[in-house]
Write a protein that binds this DNA or RNA. Structure first.
Lengths: 192, 192
DNA sequence: ATTTAATATTGACCGTGGTCAATTTTTGAT
DNA sequence: ATCAAAAATTGACCACGGTCAATATTAAAT
């Protein structure tokens, strides 16, 4: 079983990705139409699905790339040691995650790898988020009666909860940041 | 502005809901096709959309009803006072929420009311979940340094996190119950 | 009983994601 | 250079959710 990847394959894929990025740039993720992408890329519709399993797979790549960049940005800063600083450091990440309802839903849907053999770009980002927070917590003034990895998982859970509520009219009295701060203070503060 | 609802409206709606429930019974939620429902109900496709804004709206009703019943079941039992008992009491609820990937995704998507004026069945259930847990926690041996409503929100957040990971091949080593127990012990235990 | 206005139903039609047999292009062997 | 097998591309076609102008039915007024 041999598998030669032709040059044009890479070219076509690049064209599709570029075209898709352009389309997103114009109207956001939610409004992206496969038809529009293939037209902009100058290929047939079937070609799209020869390169990406479905529309979601393309979205995973586009959104994953962006999210990965946000995570890099967060990681580049000085490791935060307090709850407000942690929230501040994660701000670009959370901001992007909440930028569109569509984006948030897709992120949640693909946050876990469906199969071990194939970790998608978004599941990878969630792992990265986890690792970054864990590293921070290792050197922050937080409760020590619980393992750091568990604390980091909790931060992720609370961040998602706070983001969920952000899209919820019922709880719009409190801002995302304030809510997350309340959560994390209760979760991370050292036992009195 | 008067609005007379005709008798047949109620009848047609009931027929559609019954037909939909039957279809779900046979093949689950994920596989439900609007076409199949209207055929089983003996009405035209347009009629369906005169009664429900879209397919999701029907799903919200069907899934919301079922979830509400599960919550009633949980509430009927003796108020649990320990973490394992709480998890046990919530078991039927979580079981249903995880019964299908499709169900879980839809629940998350509609967990927050999009508009204050119109709280959907699922958002209502999430509120109910929150209220039940809060009542339990008021009389349980849990940490007292944090308001009960915040504790209850946390339980919800951790439950969702644990369910998410249940669908994730990467974290399938631990069972849902074990994971949730770990989370809740760390979150609810009184400060040492 | 008729009329009329409000309400409900219909089904042909559309938009969009996704499929696949047929065709074209590339690669490697001779 | 020629040819055969593998790989990539094409676009007509399908599935399914959703729309809407036309039609049918109901309820209330006379």
């Amino acid at each position: 079983m041999q598998k030669t990847i032709q040059q044009r394959t890479l070219k076509t894929r690049a064209k599709l990705l570029q075209a898709a990025a352009d389309v997103v740039q114009k109207n956001g993720y939610q409004a992206l139409r496969v038809e529009e992408v293939v037209q902009a890329a100058g290929v047939a519709k079937g070609t799209f699905f020869a390169h990406f399993h479905d529309k979601d797979a393309l979205m995973e790549i586009l959104i994953g790339e962006k999210l990965d960049a946000c995570l890099d940005q967060a990681q580049a800063a000085e490791p935060p040691k307090t709850v407000p600083k942690i929230i501040e450091a994660l701000a670009p990440v959370h901001e992007f995650m909440m930028s569109e309802r569509y984006v948030f839903d897709l992120l949640i849907r693909y946050s876990g790898a469906a199969a071990i053999s194939e970790i998608g770009p978004i599941a990878y980002c969630f792992e990265k988020y986890f690792r970054i927070v864990m590293m921070w917590l290792d050197q922050a003034e937080v409760r020590q009666d619980v393992p750091t990895d568990l604390l980091a998982e909790g931060v992720q859970a609370f961040a998602i909860q706070a983001m969920s509520l952000k899209f919820c009219a019922l709880h719009s009295a409190t801002t995302f940041t304030d809510r997350l701060e309340t959560y994390l203070r209760a979760w991370l503060s050292p036992a009195a």
